[in-house]
Computed example of a mutant assay.
Amino acid sequence: MKKLAVLALAAFAFVAHASDSACMAAAKEKKLSGAAQNSFVKKCEKDAKAKCETAATEKKLAGAAKNSNVKKCVHDTGPAA
């Protein structure tokens, strides 16, 4: 039950930081708004998370170290990375 609560908080924190992400900055740079902005950011962050998960696995990270690394990586990764 505690793990579920931690995962829920982590998901909330991830969404809360979406407005600060490199993907959001790229969407604003492209002058996107509304549904187009939301769609762009969602896809951008999904793609970034996949790349960051792969990189963390290649670094043989696990647990909290992996989660922290992926979170920072996704935040820092833009659409071109």
Rank of each mutant, 00 (worst) to 15 (best):
M1I: 00
M1Y: 05
K3E: 11
V6A: 10
L7K: 03
A8D: 09
A8V: 09
L9A: 09
F14D: 09
V15F: 14
V15E: 14
A16H: 02
A16L: 05
H17D: 08
S19M: 05
S21Y: 00
S21R: 00
A22C: 09
M24S: 06
A25D: 02
A26K: 08
A27P: 01
E29R: 05
K30W: 00
K31G: 05
S33Y: 06
A36E: 15
Q37G: 06
N38A: 14
N38E: 12
S39V: 03
K42C: 10
K42G: 09
K43Q: 15
C44S: 08
C44R: 05
C44L: 01
E45T: 03
D47W: 00
K49T: 10
K49M: 08
A50Q: 08
K51T: 07
K51I: 09
T54L: 14
A55D: 15
T57G: 13
K59M: 11
K60N: 14
K60M: 02
L61C: 01
A62D: 07
G63H: 06
G63K: 04
A64N: 06
A64D: 08
A65N: 03
A65I: 02
K66L: 04
N67R: 02
N67E: 01
S68G: 14
V70K: 06
K72W: 00
K72D: 03
V74T: 12
V74P: 10
T77K: 00
T77E: 07
G78A: 13
G78P: 10
G78F: 11
P79H: 02
A80W: 13
